[in-house]
Design a protein around this nucleic acid. Sequence first.
DNA 1: TATAGTGGTATACTTTAGTATAGCGCTATA
DNA 2: TATAGCGCTATACTAAAGTATACCACTATA
Lengths: 121, 121
Amino acid sequence: MNVKSMQFSFKKAKSCPIQFVLAVNDTLNVINGKWKLPIIGSLLFDKKRFTEIQRNIPKITPRMLSKELKELEINGIVKRTVYDTIPVSVEYELTKSGENLGEVLDKMLEWGIEHRKVVFK
Amino acid sequence: MNVKSMQFSFKKAKSCPIQFVLAVNDTLNVINGKWKLPIIGSLLFDKKRFTEIQRNIPKITPRMLSKELKELEINGIVKRTVYDTIPVSVEYELTKSGENLGEVLDKMLEWGIEHRKVVFK
DNA sequence: TATAGTGGTATACTTTAGTATAGCGCTATA
DNA sequence: TATAGCGCTATACTAAAGTATACCACTATA
């Protein structure tokens, strides 16, 4: 079966198998917290260096940026590449999974916009 | 322009306008926290009463369930109906927006399943 | 009368998330 | 020599999220 053509749906399932819960929780865990989305957003169009991301997200502290980037790396969303320059330069970019998150964000965007219409009718 | 046919996309936008950020943040805020998803999941197929939801989510305390349901109601995700029986019975159900969240969850499910394949290859 | 169920609230507490501030080794530029 | 930039880490703190426990008014059942 072609993976791309495979559709998962809660409505279709009419119930909530444990793998569904795990998968959705994975997705949520990847994007939760105050800074993960801004960081992913910052990397969505371009690979960037630590300080560039920091400049993109003015209020983030280096501690949080470092911490969140580490988590994103561990979770396979971000790839960290160290270049052997002097001093070292480090580049962060989204993995394939990270890029695919864009689709989830698009869906969230769509829902958010529709929902705003209802709430602020 | 037909709303249903309208597509929002970060890739297409090639940037991140403020309304996009707000809309995505709305979506995230609606589903964040430990219990919102289980609650929405519990209501996705059926309206339910307080105690039924509690039985669906064994580890939730009544305090949290009450708190989260209130937030979901304020955010227009859940509708609360009080029936004038003795003692009162209260029913919780998803609004249209709440139901539509199912599509977002489906997308998250899809991504989560794909991502798991990559991570646990 | 005692127990259980319904739909919660109140108070106090712990755990997790995020902030503030300082500093590290390195080097290029003024 | 002093300053600034790079890519962070350490320590200490505050704020937010979640937990534990007890309790409320009400009623039907044992």
